[in-house]
């Protein structure tokens, strides 16, 4: 089934092969990056990256940038 999620504030069509947060990160080629994931406004700990991606989920991918 076609799933459309809100990804970092933009509408994003998820291909059927992507079923979990981990698979989404790998699909986006972010698997080896230092980042934090928020799913439906809840912070996901790394051990929960097997959480399923559902239609209309709101996903935020956050990272560290330079700052003082």
């Amino acid at each position: 089934m076609e799933k459309t999620i809100d990804l970092n504030g933009k509408s994003y069509a998820v291909i059927p092969e992507v079923e979990t947060v981990q698979q989404l990160l790998e699909h986006l080629e972010l698997g080896d990056r230092i980042l934090i994931v928020e799913k439906n406004k809840e912070i996901l700990q790394k051990e929960h990256y097997d959480a399923p991606i559902m239609d209309r989920d709101q996903i935020e991918i956050i990272h560290f940038v330079g700052g003082g």
Partner: peptide
């Protein structure tokens, strides 16, 4: 020190 920001995933790495 670092800041925490939304990743710009829609632009080239």
């Amino acid at each position: 020190t670092f800041a925490v920001r939304r990743m710009n995933i829609f632009e080239a790495s």
